[in-house]
Design a protein around this nucleic acid. Structure first.
Lengths: 228, 228
DNA sequence: TGCTTTTCCAAACAACTGTATTAAACACTT
DNA sequence: AAGTGTTTAATACAGTTGTTTGGAAAAGCA
């Protein structure tokens, strides 16, 4: 097993070059389909460099995913709220934040595609992502939901509402290419920009939230026959 | 190029065996990571059989995806509605149908995972799926939405509402493994069965729909500054 | 039965895979 | 300038990849 060499001096070093070139390639084709030779060729380094700097292909992949998440968070930072910001505004801001992180309208960010892969087919790296990023992120959303409802909802209800909001946003990233096959090209350009989508998800979710709240809790428990 | 031999007599033929064994493997690891040798070993046939019956690996993959869709639709057929069925009931039925097709609670169906891959990274096969399946399916949902609202919504509004409903359902398939990392194991068993999820998505969406409807159309157009 | 077509198989093919080895080039300190 | 540890590069290695081949076995049919 080769010893891993951490080149702490950042910049245009070989290590950095590999890391930056590996990202888009892993994102585009997945771990398995990506070859170390392709990365090295793209980064203009020798094939042996990956093993020299990262030990093996897997560890390079792990580093790439972690970096991708950090980059994306840095590219699209969380909004700052004052103590007086009302929860409705927070919700819209948060939905906009999710969509902004997920779908960059102009150039599809490879960072997101890489993270999508981890969500769909988690490797060991995914546990790291959940603890470091997804969980605290999700908790912020749950806090907003509680504020909107006015009291603390049961855990599972609150979570499901959170998932409903995130699910809507994720749809436009996960199924983007298929959606484009479904609707008119011009419609996609005109009606599916970031603000349009955010506005829609906001209105739809706010309605869902209020309606959910107004429904008697007993109704939720009435139908409970499980099949399939 | 080898000539493709269509073995029309179905049953336990070599061709059928390859097709059935290839499905779960493609679903589990994707096209590229799957090796023809693994499929053949699993199906107890010679390595040359795939090229003999399907031409090459790609065409086998295509056939597998098409078959997977047909199987899943057959496994979970659409509900029958009478002319007097009210749209609320139709919506709940339809949401249940989507969830039932997506998430089989006991054994995760490989057919769905295979179709997920096509949605996420469309190949040529995806066009076939959209035209043959997704579009008519989506149109049924849009019809229900129109019935609920009482009149025909603008195309893009109606579509977005449809995507919001489908997005929520898709979430529980796409992000299932990550969601399990997020919440308590016991909660997942108790609160995330099919009926619970269907009930939640139904209530949330109905609320979203009604609220959306009540909002003045002009408000939708007010915020239109696009950044990012 | 003899002949033809279909199906199957063992082996080989050439290209590609991740990784290891080795030595040369480099940047530093002394 | 010599000696130090670090970085790069060419090449080899052992294994896997999808596909092809030529002939054997089986099936269909007269």
């Amino acid at each position: 097993m080769p010893t891993i060499h951490q080149n702490s001096t950042s910049g245009d070093s070989t290590r950095e070059r590999i890391l930056m070139e590996a990202g888009p390639i892993f994102a585009g084709k997945g771990f398995r389909a990506t070859t170390v030779r392709e990365i090295c060729e793209q980064a203009n380094v020798n094939v042996a460099s990956i093993n020299y700097y990262f030990g093996d292909k897997r560890q390079l992949y792990h580093q790439t995913v972690v970096l991708a998440r950090e980059m994306r968070v840095e590219q699209v930072p969380e909004p700052k709220w004052s103590s007086t910001t009302d929860p409705e505004e927070k919700l819209l801001d948060f939905i906009t934040l999710i969509l902004r992180r997920l779908v960059a309208m102009q150039t599809e960010p490879w960072q997101v595609r890489l993270l999508m892969r981890e969500i769909l087919e988690p490797t060991e790296t995914c546990k790291h992502l959940v603890e470091e990023y997804f969980r605290p992120f999700f908790n912020t959303l749950c806090g907003i939901i509680d504020d909107l409802v006015g009291y603390r909802l049961p855990e599972h209800t609150r979570n499901k509402i959170g998932f409903s909001i995130i699910g809507q946003c994720l749809y436009y990233r996960f199924s983007a290419e298929m959606t484009r096959l479904m609707i008119e090209q011009q419609d996609y350009v005109d009606q599916y920009d970031l603000d349009n989508l955010a506005q829609h998800v906001y209105l739809f979710s706010l309605g869902g939230l209020k309606h959910y709240q107004s429904v008697d809790e007993s109704t939720l428990k009435s139908t409970s026959t499980t099949d399939q």
